[in-house]
């Protein structure tokens, strides 16, 4: 079954993904596009940060098979306390923010920046309006 992997910024259907129990094994060359993580000699890396994998941990989340290196991204998420949700019927997985995105996220007085489209599809960043007072109003139709 095709596995779909979602993050707040991406949607990927890796060619080779295996679900085994609570594990989600991805080939290391498909890791970056699907999750934003990369397997490097120093550990699992995303952007500026790397999470070292201790030998006992590496045994459980990294394996060599069929001439490729595989990473259990669900097991790794548990290790770094990255939240995720899984629907087994459709094999769809959603991964929440990684440790580097959570850090400082709620130092709120510095208004968190974001980019979103308007009704016509034109993108706006909050920081485009720096230098003005901005009344930011969240609403919904429901």
């Amino acid at each position: 079954m095709t596995v779909t992997i979602l993050t707040s910024a991406s949607e990927a259907t890796p060619a080779d993904a295996h679900v085994e129990g609570g594990s989600l094994w991805l080939r290391s060359d498909e890791l970056l596009a699907a999750t934003g993580w990369e397997l490097k000699p120093e550990g699992m890396c995303r952007g500026e940060i790397c999470v070292p994998l201790p030998a006992d941990r590496a045994v459980s989340v990294v394996r060599e098979r069929d001439g490729a290196t595989w990473v259990d991204v669900a097991g790794f998420a548990g290790y770094v306390r990255q939240t995720f949700a899984h629907d087994a019927t459709t094999e769809t997985w959603y991964f929440g923010p990684g440790p580097e995105e959570r850090r400082g996220q709620f130092q709120l007085l510095d208004a968190p920046d974001f980019e979103l489209p308007d009704i016509n599809g034109r993108k706006h960043r909050l920081s485009d309006y720096r230098g003005k007072k901005v009344l930011l109003a969240l609403w919904a139709s429901w």
Binding site: D110, A111, L126, R130, K133, V134, A137, L138
Partner: peptide, 16 residues
């Protein structure tokens, strides 16, 4: 936020 409406005032420096 956990509901709407929710209004925030952000000043010229980008501070809430």
């Amino acid at each position: 936020t956990r509901n709407v409406p929710a209004l925030f005032w952000i000043d010229e420096r980008g501070w809430i």
